[in-house]
Nucleic acid binder design. Structure first.
Lengths: 325, 325
DNA sequence: TTGTAGGCGTTATCAA
DNA sequence: TTGATAACGCCTACAA
């Protein structure tokens, strides 16, 4: 393995000079430069980032911590992060919490051991994990971003979509399409978050009406339980706050020979490939997952570089119109 | 930042002893052990993996190189890798080639700079990239696995699904369901790979019949071009060698009021969430993506640890029956 | 059972 | 413009 010293010897300079050339901070003489370049080529030198990290006390590794990667929701965010980090020559560690079987403190310790430059936590809107560890994060003073968590600001940068706006846009779209009896359908959404959506709905309806709230429970049979309930209440438009559930509801409606859109419209929160391949294709509120990843990465990089950064970034959702409403 | 030396001083022992305790290879006296433990707790010591890596000349970092992570096909494999690596306390770097904009040599250099312990390349069946760099990989002598590439053995461990078997199973299933005029539909599949599928088909039909081969071209309109072609040829079963295409074909059939299964059956190669949410749900040949990731990781670990490992691992596909055939 | 000393490959601080 | 020297935090002969 060729080291910097080997290059120095081969080029008849000191290791120090080679290092300076490589980091091109201070100028070296044209002639020595040529000699060094030749040595590097001849010996096939590859710098050792690990040694550099030890000496400089910094790495170019950012960690993403998420529940699971084989989920389009998270992987789109991750791809955005990867794109931005790659552009800035940072490496991306991925840790799947579901697989890792570590508690918060252990994960944090893992990050410290590996001298991670920054951590991006991706979670659900409602995720409040890592709350207890906040103290540890503070003490260690490492750059952190919470991505996709609609939680109160706790001193750590937050990047998330504007849920009130999303809900308002969605409701407006349903009204625009002539729907008037709307249901808000969700799955495991805690009350304080549901409030955001209700607020958005009220903004759109100008307080003229209230949505019917329906919660999908685990293992619930949509065709049997949900669809009849929708019909009994004369619902003509459902805003589903979970993309996969929107897909399954649509399937249930089709199966029950209810015309999607004409009889009951379906609007999905979230716009991944799933909405596109659903039949009929789902109209949805796009939450900008890739952009969310990009922004999160940018904020981590700003922190690492001690530049100023926005503590809270709120992304604007938009409607993508397809066939379901 | 607390170092091993600090612990040593605080516990009145030498750094050497602390190191020995931490690596628990050689026994230390119970009493000193207690003192060290106390010191570690009191000072909040976290080992520095980077320093260790430099000294030992090895890291616990494995890199996965793939086209893009926001694709269920790749992310399922990656999740399997992550699961296995996590279990063995290895870290996972993810590099998206589509984002990185680096050529093979540059990626390899990146791996060397970072002292990556092993590389898993995930690609398409037909992917032959990194061919030119094989020499560099050889020279560096780093553990490598090609995952999901059905390519000839070139000295590097291969893990891939048995495509002939997959095709045979698929064709048998179609025959079993009373389908006799079968089309093999693919997208960008090179001839040598298509041969595998034709071989599998022949095995199933015992040479009694030939499948019709149809290639989907980019930007092709399935309802307009494909469906009529299927009807003209009296095709009653289509084996689609690309999951997303299977979903779109199914949509096209439904749209054309052709009964999926009764009129034309659809069988998908690949079993991700997409097949499940399609309407009707697609019967498919499961290629065991997660398992593929797990095996790839196991083989990388065996290589890293200089244990014996299978040069070629071929996974057995199986049928998952749903509604489309 | 424990300690001493040297080095992994790099960079920072001086001085020349 | 360059070089000598000493770290960064850890591990490992070897010696005690």
């Amino acid at each position: 393995m060729t080291t910097l010293k080997d290059i120095a010897k081969h080029a008849n300079v000191s290791a120090c000079t080679v290092s300076r050339y490589l980091n091109s901070d201070i100028v070296v003489k044209k002639e020595t430069e040529a000699r060094i370049q030749r040595a590097i080529k001849e010996l096939g030198y590859v710098p050792n980032v690990v040694a550099k990290a030890l000496k400089r006390n910094e790495t170019f590794n950012v960690a993403v911590i998420l529940p699971k990667i084989n989920n389009l929701y998270y992987s789109e965010i991750t791809s955005g992060i990867s794109q931005t980090l790659g552009k800035h020559h940072y490496n991306l560690f991925v840790y799947e919490v579901d697989n890792l079987n570590l508690n918060e403190d252990e994960i944090l310790q893992l990050m410290r051991e590996n001298m991670i430059a920054g951590i991006i936590f991706i979670g659900l809107f409602s995720d409040v994990s890592f709350k207890e560890s906040i103290q540890s994060v503070f003490e260690w003073n490492i750059p952190v971003v919470y991505a996709n968590r609609c939680i109160p600001y706790n001193g750590f940068p937050l990047v998330y979509p504007d849920l009130v706006k999303a809900s308002k846009l969605g409701a407006e779209h349903l009204f625009l399409k002539g729907k008037s009896k709307i249901a808000l359908m969700h799955k495991n959404l805690p009350n304080h978050l549901l409030e955001y959506f209700i607020d958005g709905f009220n903004l759109a309806s100008k307080g003229q009406q209230k949505p019917m709230i329906m919660e999908i429970e685990d293992g619930m049979d949509l065709p049997k339980n949900c669809v009849p309930h929708l019909l009994e209440n004369n619902i003509d438009g459902v805003f589903v706050l979970n993309e996969l559930s929107a897909v399954y509801l649509t399937k249930a409606l089709v199966q029950a020979k209810i015309r999607v859109f004409e009889d009951i419209a379906v609007l999905s929160l979230g716009n991944s490939l799933m909405s596109q391949i659903s039949t009929p294709e789902l109209t949805c509120v796009d939450l900008q997952n890739r952009e969310l990843g990009i922004r999160s990465a940018e904020i981590i990089l700003s922190q690492i570089r001690k530049q100023v950064f926005e503590p809270i970034t709120i992304l604007e959702p938009f409607i993508v119109e397809r066939k379901s409403v």
